[in-house]
Simulated assay, not measured.
Amino acid sequence: MQANYLSEEEDLRVAVDAVKVARRIAEADALKPVIIDEYVPGRQYQTDEQLLGAARRFSQTIYHPTSTCKMGNDDMAVVDCRLRVHGIKGLRVADASIMPLIVSGNTNAPSIMIGEKCADMIKQDQTHG
């Protein structure tokens, strides 16, 4: 999956501004005594161009990709309500990609629940169908 991070002009500006804001927070009187040094990107990155280069080098998402296999019956839907892939017999998707939106917490527990629910549906289909 190619997420195209930092591919839009607005993303570039926000990345540079985020480092500047984090630095201002770290330099606040309340934090300054406990801040030893800047670890990433590092004080050697000062200009906007340098900060952007650091963002390209060091940035990563903390989120797990989700919500790429829409559930439903419309033209954009990949799976139906029983997680069966439209148009491919015998194939289901049972992971975080069927989530309509990313959850606010870790995706592990919801992904386990999705897998367990799918297993139950497969058993039901084998028994009744």
Results as ranks from 00 to 15, higher is better:
Gln2Thr: 04
Gln2Ile: 00
Gln2Ala: 10
Leu6Lys: 08
Glu8Tyr: 11
Glu9Asp: 14
Glu10Gln: 14
Arg13Gln: 13
Val14Thr: 08
Val14Gln: 10
Ala15Trp: 05
Ala15Leu: 07
Val16Phe: 12
Val16Pro: 12
Asp17Pro: 00
Asp17Val: 03
Val19Asp: 08
Val21Thr: 10
Ala22Asn: 07
Arg23Leu: 06
Arg23Asp: 06
Arg23Gln: 11
Ile25Gly: 09
Ile25Gln: 09
Glu27Asp: 15
Glu27Ile: 00
Glu27Gly: 12
Ala28Phe: 03
Ala28Gln: 10
Ala30His: 04
Leu31Met: 12
Leu31Trp: 09
Lys32Glu: 14
Ile36Arg: 12
Asp37Cys: 05
Pro41Tyr: 06
Pro41Val: 03
Arg43Cys: 03
Gln44Ser: 14
Tyr45Val: 07
Tyr45Met: 10
Gln46Ala: 15
Thr47Tyr: 13
Thr47Met: 14
Gln50Gly: 13
Gln50Asn: 11
Leu51Phe: 07
Leu51Trp: 06
Leu52His: 10
Leu52Gly: 11
Gly53Glu: 15
Gly53Ile: 01
Ala55Asp: 07
Ala55Cys: 14
Arg56Leu: 12
Arg57Ile: 01
Ser59Trp: 07
Ser59Pro: 01
Ser59Val: 00
Ser59Met: 13
Ser59His: 05
Ser59Arg: 05
Thr61His: 07
Thr61Pro: 05
Ile62Gly: 08
Tyr63Thr: 05
Tyr63Val: 00
His64Phe: 04
Pro65Lys: 04
Thr66Leu: 02
Ser67Met: 02
Ser67Ile: 01
Thr68Ser: 15
Cys69Leu: 02
Lys70Gly: 01
Lys70Ala: 15
Met71Arg: 03
Gly72Lys: 02
Gly72Cys: 04
Gly72Phe: 03
Asn73Glu: 13
Asp74Asn: 15
Asp74Ala: 09
Asp75Leu: 01
Asp75Gly: 02
Met76Tyr: 07
Met76Thr: 11
Ala77Asn: 09
Ala77Trp: 00
Ala77Gln: 08
Val78Arg: 04
Val78Met: 06
Val79Arg: 01
Val79Pro: 02
Asp80Tyr: 02
Cys81Ser: 14
Arg82Ala: 12
Leu83Trp: 01
Leu83Pro: 01
Arg84Met: 02
Arg84Val: 00
Arg84Asn: 14
Arg84Trp: 01
Arg84Ser: 02
His86Cys: 07
Gly87Cys: 07
Gly87Ala: 07
Ile88Met: 13
Lys89Thr: 06
Lys89Glu: 15
Leu91Tyr: 03
Val93Glu: 05
Ala96His: 04
Ala96Leu: 06
Ala96Arg: 02
Ser97Thr: 13
Ile98Trp: 03
Met99Ala: 07
Pro100Ser: 11
Ile102Tyr: 05
Ser104Thr: 13
Gly105Gln: 08
Asn106Met: 04
Asn108Gly: 06
Ser111Tyr: 06
Gly115Ala: 13
Gly115Phe: 06
Glu116Leu: 08
Asp120His: 11
Met121Leu: 15
Ile122Gly: 08
Lys123Tyr: 10
Gln124Ser: 12
Gln124Phe: 11
Gln124Asp: 14
Asp125Glu: 14
Gln126Lys: 10
Thr127Arg: 14
His128Glu: 15
Gly129Phe: 03
